[in-house]
Design a protein around this nucleic acid. Structure first.
Length: 423
RNA sequence: GCGACCGUAGCUCAGUUGGUUAGAGCGCCGGUUUGUGGUACCGGAGGUCGGGGAUUCGAGCUCCCUCGGUCGCCCCA
C-alpha cells in the first residue's frame, strides 16, 4: 500500500467474505421474523437536527457533547449523525402524523454513529436492527416485542443467551427508588470506588452494575425497586412476566438492570450470553446482544402528546460474531473457455444459465492452460468446458456431488444443452 | 479521556547477542506435461521492515516521539 493511500476512519470497518455473509444472514433473518410479527418497515434519515437526539437524551451532557458525531451544515444548523434509532423514529412519528396508525409496530435497520474508542464489538459506525411499538401502553406489547426478539435469536442459532428482565416502575416508583438508592450509597460514600462516588451525583442507578470490587459488598443490600413499586406498576410487571411464560420465552429477573434516562418506565431488558458460554467468550466485555425497554416519557420530551412506546435494538456486528462463519453460496455452474475461439459460445451459455437463475461463473481470462484448473478450484456442482482439440470443437461436462435441489435443476438444464450440442 | 499489548511482501508469519544485496508458505501472473486435468515442477512480479528523530562505523532488531491496530477502563442512548 502506498503511503499516500487514504486510510479508513478510526472505528469504521470494511466487511467482506464470511463476516459479510454473517452480517447479511442476520439482516435477512430479522426481515423474515419481523414480518411474522407484522412489524412494518420504516426508513429514516441517518442525520437529524442535533436537537432531536439532545432532547431525547435529556441533555445528558457527557453523551451529547462527547459521544455524538455533530457538525454544522452550511446554513449554520447543528446536525448529528444518528447515534440510535429511537429518537429519529419518534420524530418521524410526530412529524408525519403516524399517530393515525397507532398502535404502530415498526422495524428498521442500518448504520449508527457514536464517537467512542473502538473495542471488541464496538465501532464508531456500527449497525443495528431495531423494533418499536409506538402508541401501545399495554404489557402485551412488551410481551410481543420480547417474543419476537427471542424467536429471532433462536432462528439465528444463538441459544446460549438469556433474557434479563427488570422493571423500573412508573414515574413515581422510579423516583422513590432512586432517592432511596442515593440515600443508601451516600451513607457509605467514602468506601465506594472513585467512579461510583462520581456516579452518586450524576447517575446513581449505575452504581448497581459497577464492576469495581470495592462496590460489590454494598450492592446486595441496596434498596430494591420491588419495595417501591405502586400497585399499578407491580401489576404491569406481573402481566409482562406471565405473558412471557405463556409465550414460552425464558427469562431471568435482573434487579440491577437499569436505564440512565428518565423517560424509561416499567420494562427494561437485555439478552446476555450465559456465563462461560461460547457467546460470552466471543463478545469480550461487550456482553449485551440485544437490549431495550419501555420509554413512555420520550415522545412527550420531543413535544408530542403523552404516548406510550416500547422497543429494542441489537448490534448486527455482535450478532454476526455469534452466528459463526457463513460460507459463500455454492457455485452451481462453472463455464470454462479453454480456447479463445470458444469464448463467445461460453459467454452465451453463461448468460443463459444466469437467466435461468443459476449461480454461474465464467472462466475465460489468463492462461488458457490454467483456466480449467481455476474452474475446478472454485468447486462448482457442474463444470462445462469449451475447448478446441486437434482442430475440433470439444465441449465437455463434468458433474460433481450435489447438495441441493437447485443443483439438480442446473444439471437437468445443462443436460438438455449437452444433448443438443451433441447433435 | 486513561491503560496494556502489537505494527516485516496482498495474507499468515520467520528474521539468531545490532553486521553485507530482508526470507518462507499461501495467493497472484507466466512457463513445462498434447494432458479427463482441483496435482507436480520451473520462473516472475510484489517490501524505503507504519512514519519521524536519536544512539552507533553499522538498526527490521536499542531509545524517544508520532500515527495506526487490538483488547480493557470510563461511558453505554
Amino acid at each position: 500500500m502506498s503511503k499516500n493511500t487514504p486510510k479508513a476512519i478510526r472505528g469504521t470497518q470494511d466487511i467482506f467474505g464470511p463476516d459479510a455473509e454473517a452480517f447479511a444472514f442476520v439482516v435477512e433473518t430479522f426481515e423474515r421474523v419481523r414480518k411474522l410479527y407484522r412489524f412494518r418497515r420504516a426508513e429514516m434519515p441517518v442525520f437529524e437536527k442535533t436537537e432531536v437526539f439532545a432532547r431525547s437524551l435529556g441533555e445528558t451532557t457527557d453523551v451529547v457533547s462527547k459521544e455524538m458525531y455533530s457538525f454544522e451544515d452550511r446554513g449554520g444548523d447543528s446536525l448529528t449523525l444518528r447515534p440510535e434509532f429511537t429518537a429519529g423514529i419518534a420524530r418521524a412519528y410526530l412529524t408525519n402524523g403516524w399517530q393515525q396508525h397507532a398502535p404502530l409496530k415498526l422495524a428498521t435497520h442500518g448504520p449508527l454513529f457514536r464517537y467512542e474508542r473502538p473495542q471488541k464489538g464496538r465501532y464508531r459506525q456500527f449497525h443495528q436492527i431495531d423494533a418499536e411499538i409506538i402508541g401501545a401502553g399495554e404489557p402485551q406489547a412488551d410481551v410481543e416485542l420480547l417474543a419476537m426478539a427471542d424467536q429471532l435469536l433462536k432462528e439465528l442459532g444463538i441459544e446460549d443467551v438469556t433474557l434479563h428482565l427488570n422493571t423500573l416502575g412508573d414515574g413515581e416508583s422510579r423516583e422513590a427508588w432512586r432517592a432511596a438508592l442515593v440515600e443508601y450509597f451516600r451513607a457509605v460514600k467514602d468506601e465506594l470506588s472513585e467512579d461510583s462516588q462520581e456516579r452518586l451525583e450524576k447517575n446513581p442507578l449505575r452504581i448497581l452494575d459497577s464492576k469495581d470490587r470495592k462496590d460489590k459488598p454494598f450492592l446486595a443490600d441496596a434498596p430494591k425497586i420491588d419495595d417501591f413499586l405502586s400497585d399499578e406498576a407491580r401489576a404491569f410487571f406481573e402481566a409482562v412476566t406471565s405473558g412471557l411464560d405463556a409465550a414460552g420465552v425464558k427469562w431471568k429477573r435482573a434487579e440491577a438492570l437499569v436505564r440512565g434516562l428518565d423517560y424509561y418506565r416499567h420494562t427494561a431488558f437485555e439478552f446476555i450470553p450465559d456465563e462461560g458460554s461460547v457467546s460470552a467468550d466471543a463478545l469480550g466485555s461487550q456482553s449485551t446482544v440485544l437490549g431495550g425497554g419501555r420509554y413512555d416519557g420520550l415522545i412527550e420530551n420531543l413535544g408530542g402528546s403523552a404516548t406510550p412506546a416500547v422497543g429494542w435494538a441489537a448490534g448486527i456486528e455482535r450478532l454476526a460474531m455469534l452466528v459463526g462463519d457463513r460460507a459463500d453460496d455454492l457455485l452451481e455452474v462453472a463455464i470454462v473457455a479453454e480456447h479463445a475461439a470458444r469464448e463467445s459460445e461460453a459467454a452465451e451459455l453463461v448468460a443463459r444459465c444466469r437467466r435461468r437463475g443459476f449461480q454461474t461463473e465464467l472462466f475465460a481470462t489468463g492462461s488458457p492452460r490454467k483456466r480449467f484448473d481455476k474452474a475446478r478450484k472454485a468447486e462448482p456442482a457442474v463444470l462445462v468446458s469449451f475447448d478446441v482439440r486437434e482442430g475440433k470443437d470439444t465441449t465437455k461436462f463434468a458433474w460433481f456431488e450435489s447438495t441441493s435441489g437447485r443443483v439438480e435443476e442446473a444439471k437437468a438444464f445443462l443436460s438438455e444443452f449437452q444433448s443438443a450440442s451433441e447433435i
